[in-house]
Design a protein around this nucleic acid. Structure first.
Lengths: 181, 181
DNA sequence: ATACTCATGTAAGCTGTTACATGATTCT
DNA sequence: AGAATCATGTAACAGCTTACATGAGTAT
């Protein structure tokens, strides 16, 4: 009965009006993927599991000859979703950052390689800002929560990019003073 | 032959002087776990795989009657590690943040519940700052890279906590103006 | 024609966690 | 005597990605 993390995202996406696996995946890729990803390999089987558990109800709604299965929340699904949103249990927070990992182990690396690493990290986050900006119009229409989280993402990745730039500057300064010319 | 992510961490930890699975796990838990975790269930089997692949060489070095298996890097292991640290391939970056996820879906939630969520998010990051501070002395001795990453972590989680505080203040302001008294 | 989008799904495999099992040594 | 630490490992399971398979409708 216990609702998986991905199951919760699916319930919430259905409440947001995404009624098919395809539509759910689309919105995930435009929004939550930055802090909670999900693949077709999770979504389709999970929808069936949620249906078995009675949290959603599915119905075939083909468009022309095109197959299509649409889901709505049952009353149990509604309360399971609300239960999760209101629960005060520990909030999962997991990060995997290969840039920080390399930086952590970068002591034996020459300064040029460390500088290069910081630049690549910075570019990664600048790229995130670009992606988030391209998604901004949709987020505005997606509700207050969606827009608040988008603004967080923009500010967050800008902050990281700035941090990288600072570290680059420090490294460049100490480097040129160590080997001037 | 391709070196797994956890395999790289293990090689790097061995170069840092952690020669046993137990010691590697200890240092992971004090340092990289904040951006790259690893469990015994990964570490011990991976050490054996690395040995089979010829990247590390293990030897039994019991302390008294206490079992102990110590590893060193082979030449192949050294170059595999250097190859990873210097490679310019895409840097993995993955985040799973249940706080942001709930915030994203928080539109139907009453203001009190949203405020509560922001507070819990803030406390989570304030707690991270406390944990990172407790680890600071060790990071200072762990080398420049370790200390740089620790300072990043401190600043990063402080920034997030500040963001949460700002959002709390905004919400409180709009709330009390909407329902004064 | 052909490429793209809509649409659903599965199978194999990889990664990772949790819980368990074992036993010696050291600290209180 | 009992708890904590040192030390190694496995088995079961949960979670997730990738690649594949299929096919209809739509735009160029």
């Amino acid at each position: 009965m216990d609702l998986s993390a991905t199951g919760r995202v699916i319930l919430a996406m259905i409440r947001k009006g995404r009624t098919t696996g395809y539509e759910i995946k689309q919105l995930v890729d435009l929004s939550t993927r930055f802090f909670w990803a999900a693949s077709y390999g999770q979504i389709y089987p999970e929808l069936r599991r949620l249906e078995e558990a009675g949290l959603v109800a599915g119905s075939e709604e083909p468009q022309g000859g095109r197959q299509r299965r649409s889901y709505r929340l049952t009353d149990d699904g509604e309360s399971a979703l609300d239960g999760w949103l209101r629960s005060t249990s520990e909030l999962t927070y997991e990060l995997r950052d290969e840039g920080l990992l390399k930086l952590f182990f970068s002591d034996e690396l020459p300064a040029a390689a460390r500088l290069n690493l910081l630049r690549r990290m910075r570019r990664r986050h600048e790229q995130m800002v670009v992606q988030l900006r391209s998604v901004e119009p949709g987020a505005r229409e997606g509700g207050a929560g969606a827009y608040q989280v988008l603004r967080y993402g923009l500010a967050h990745h800008r902050w990281i990019a700035d941090w990288c730039r600072e570290q680059e500057a420090e490294l460049e300064a100490s480097w040129s003073s160590a080997s001037p010319g």
